[in-house]
Structure formats: structure tokens, C-alpha cells
Write a protein that binds this DNA or RNA. Structure first.
Lengths: 250, 250
DNA sequence: TGTTTTAATGCAATATTTTGCTTTTTTTAA
DNA sequence: TTAAAAAAAGCAAAATATTGCATTAAAACA
């Protein structure tokens, strides 16, 4: 029997059952287990199946795909930004945290020794805040967007108009640049405007990589922002063009 | 059996029921509990589920707060109740789903072929609803309670006063009886009242075991309820005393 | 054709992984 | 707090992988 035939059979078997044992294959193909092993290894490196201990599984079956591997990328930067943002907080501050992964990181990193009242529109952020004993969390209600997991629309905007917070922390967008152009609909933009109006000071959390991309400030004008935080030191050359009296860099 | 198969089964089980016990998995998969534990641990670190003491819960269900390892028990009954509840739904119904594990189960089981507008006060329920393409979700804002993960207080009550839904589905309490006496504070009771007032029909989802406990109807009077659903058939002897013209049993 | 080179296969010795069991530590519920 | 349940850690047996090597088959070439 040709190697080609064997491998073909192996692939068929894997496609059919989603999984196979090397021992079964060896018996079925009437070759040694070593040969099967080598075949499977080859098919694996050709990405035709996934070899696992004791056998092989089909590509679709493979556990390798972590669910929603939300941007594991630039996590370091996001943490660094969020860390800086916490330095603005004082005891009993009233703040608002927007959605997006950077903001979520901020929610995670809120210091445990400062009492805060925290508004949010974001379901994941709210979840995170609930685990903080020192944070009183108020969710701004409204119609929930399926992709951003954020409350928005007329209802949310109205609720926002009723409050005034010391700081609101907003991100640059809900969709990571890696996934394609970030397009914002009318609702998103209006809601973000309402957030800004509900805050005495607005802080933009922004990874430097986005500073010069075409996604830049799709959501809001720079002059609506009081403080911008990137992962870079404030005197970094890349930030030169943002230095002015209006905008505080951190 | 390959490790991959086992883990696949575990994931299926978790997705299906939202939660599983390690002991059940061990029996079902016919391996030691250590093996199951190791598998679950692995899946957890791959962010495919969340491991909790004694079992695992699905991602959407995850009480990221270490708060309470929500009742992995009496799941069957809850599913049965939730299943019955779905029979009340019609296309384009506007409903409200309260918090608690039974209500969460209802959110999970909402049929995919019926378009719904769904209000909720519960963070976990909202999370679940977001995964349903046919459900428009509106979150009722308010101060979030750390243990029940529900919006409540004046804000929530006011928001509730603005709406009217066809059905609201409420549970008996947020804490399972097995965990001790369920004590409700003023806020909880007021909020639940507001829920009832916001609905044309109120449906109580109630495990029969609670019918004769001292926790019975701490939250609301029976005469505020239009329909009561238990896991038992409506003509079951235990339900005899609830039969009257006011209350519809299902 | 006969010889040389290369690839494929099976085997055996040696690692590595997986698994269940036991003991100890931690967590949980009452 | 105590007692029960669950998790963690360590260990040994079993299953599976890896590697080197010998044998055989196939291919290349004069």
C-alpha cells in the first residue's frame, strides 16, 4: 500500500469521525504504529489534521481555537495605559467607564484602597466592577448592542443626561483595528457624545498605534478630550503634535 | 478515549447546561475525577470555560466575582420550568426577565424562531440574551447589587415605571435555599414590586421544593402573580392548595 | 543489468505524557 | 468553630512518543 493511499485513508477516517486512535489506524491499515505515527505527523505539519496524544482530531474539532481570543495583542500597552489612568482617581471620585478592552482593563485595575462610584454602559465592565468591594456600580440602562455589549440609543442618552461625573474614561473604539475598519454608527457616536457631556473631565485611553491610523478619532473630536493617555511617556516624540494647552498628556 | 474527545464533551456539557459537576463528568466520561479536574483546569486556562469549586460554568455564565458559586444543583428542575415558560411566548412579545438562576435558564432557552423584545435587570441574563440574534435586549439601568448582580434602587424603579411588558418572569429569590435563609432588603422588594407593576402578566418561576419552605413568597404576595410555573405537572397533589381562579398553574 | 543512493518501514531502547491513587492542604457549609 | 467536600501535590504504573538503527523496497544512474 502506498503512503499516499494510507494518508488518504487516515484523512477520511478523521473527517468521518472527527477523531482517530493511532492503534486503530495501525490495525486498519495493517502497518506498524510507527508508520501511522509518521503519517499523522506529516499530515499534521501539512495542516490537514491535528495530531494529539494517542491519535489525531480533525481541524474543526481541534481545541486550539480559544473562544473569543479577544485582542491578546497589545495587552501590555492596555494595562500600562489603564495603570496610568488610575493615578487620576481620588477617594470618593465619581467616574464613568466606557466599553472596549482598554476600559475593561481599567476596571480590572481599579485600586482596592479607593472608594469609587462608577457608572458604566458596558456589560463586561459592569461584571468586572461587581467584584470590587470598594466600588459602587451603577449601570446606565438602554438598548444593548450585540457586538459592543454596550447600552446605547435614546434611552441610554437620556439616562446619561441625568448625571455628572468627575471623570469619564473612554476608549478609541470597540473593535480592534486588526479586525478591519472600525465603523461607528449614529447611535454609537451620539452615545459617546452624551458620555462626554456627562463628565467634568474626559479622559481618552488610546494605544499609540492608533494615533496615526485612519481610525483616529472617528468617535469624537480631540478638543472634546481633556486628557489623553497612551502607553508612551508624555514627552515621547510621537506625541509632539498633541501638545497644547487644551490637551493634557499622561 | 482521547483527551480531546473528553474535553470536547466537557465543553458541550457546559455549553448545554451552563454548569457541570466534576463528579458527574467523571462518571459520564468514565475516568477518575482527577482527570476531569485536570481537563477542566486546562480548558479554564484556555478560556473555554470557567472552573469553579466542584465543577465548571460556561463563560457567559461566569460570575467573575468569586461571590457565589451559583447553585449547580437542582438544574434539571430549573430547565424544566424554563422550558414550560417559553410556551407562553409569541412572536414579537415584549417580556421582562428577572434575575436568579431559573430566570437565567429561561434566557438560555428562549426559542430561536420567535422575535422578542426583552427587558432585564440582571447582568448575567443580559449577557445571555446578547447571544440571541432574534432578541432585542434592553437593560434597565440602576445601582447594581453585588450579590444578585441585578440593577435595583430608585433609579431602576423609575426606569421600570416607564415601561409595560406583556409578560414578566420572576424567580423566588436570588439565593438558593440550600445556602441558607434568603433575606430580602427593602430595595429588593421595592424593585420586584416595580417589575410586577411594569407587566401585564406576571409569571413566577418556582421550584416546588420552595413552595413549603419558610422562604415562600418573601418577595411578593401570591395574588400579584398571574401564573406560577413549577417543575411539577399542574395537577400534582402538592399544588392542590394553589388552585384558584386567580392563579394559573403551568 | 548491476550498483549505488535514497526512502520507507519495523523494531527496540529510552523519554515523555497521561492517568489513577494516596496524602496533605484548602475551601465550603452549617 | 468543626466536619465534609474539593483541590493540590507527589508518586508510580501504564500508555504513548521519540530516537537510532537494521532491513527492505524503490529509484537513479552508469
Amino acid at each position: 500500500m502506498l503512503k499516499e493511499e494510507r494518508q488518504h485513508t487516515i484523512l477520511n477516517e478523521v473527517e468521518l469521525h472527527n477523531r482517530v486512535l493511532l492503534t486503530d489506524l495501525a490495525e486498519k491499515l495493517d502497518v506498524s504504529i510507527d508508520t501511522v505515527r509518521r503519517d499523522v505527523k506529516e499530515l499534521d505539519s501539512d495542516n490537514r489534521l491535528v495530531k494529539v496524544h494517542g491519535g489525531a482530531v480533525s481541524l474543526g474539532f481541534a481545541n486550539h481555537s480559544p473562544q473569543r481570543n479577544n485582542n491578546v495583542y497589545s495587552l501590555e500597552e492596555k494595562i500600562s495605559i489603564a495603570q496610568k489612568a488610575t493615578s487620576l482617581l481620588k477617594d470618593n471620585s465619581v467616574i464613568l467607564i466606557d466599553g472596549g478592552t482598554t476600559c475593561l482593563e481599567l476596571a480590572r485595575l481599579l485600586p482596592a484602597n479607593i472608594n469609587l462610584t462608577c457608572f458604566t454602559l458596558s456589560l463586561p465592565v459592569a461584571m468586572e466592577l461587581l467584584s470590587k468591594p470598594n466600588v459602587e456600580t451603577i449601570f446606565i440602562g438602554g438598548a444593548l448592542s450585540k457586538d459592543s455589549q454596550i447600552a446605547m440609543g435614546a434611552n441610554a442618552i437620556h439616562n446619561l443626561s441625568q448625571i455628572k461625573v468627575d471623570y469619564s474614561f473612554i476608549g478609541t473604539g470597540y473593535v480592534d483595528a486588526a479586525f478591519g475598519l472600525t465603523e461607528f454608527d449614529w447611535d454609537t457616536v451620539q452615545t459617546k457624545k452624551a458620555v462626554i457631556q456627562a463628565s467634568k473631565k474626559t479622559v481618552l485611553l488610546c494605544i499609540s498605534e492608533k494615533l496615526n491610523s485612519q481610525h483616529r478619532f472617528k468617535t469624537c473630536d480631540l478638543n472634546m478630550i481633556d486628557t489623553m493617555i497612551t502607553e508612551l511617556p508624555p514627552d515621547h516624540p510621537l506625541l509632539e503634535s498633541f501638545k497644547n494647552q487644551e490637551l493634557f498628556l499622561l
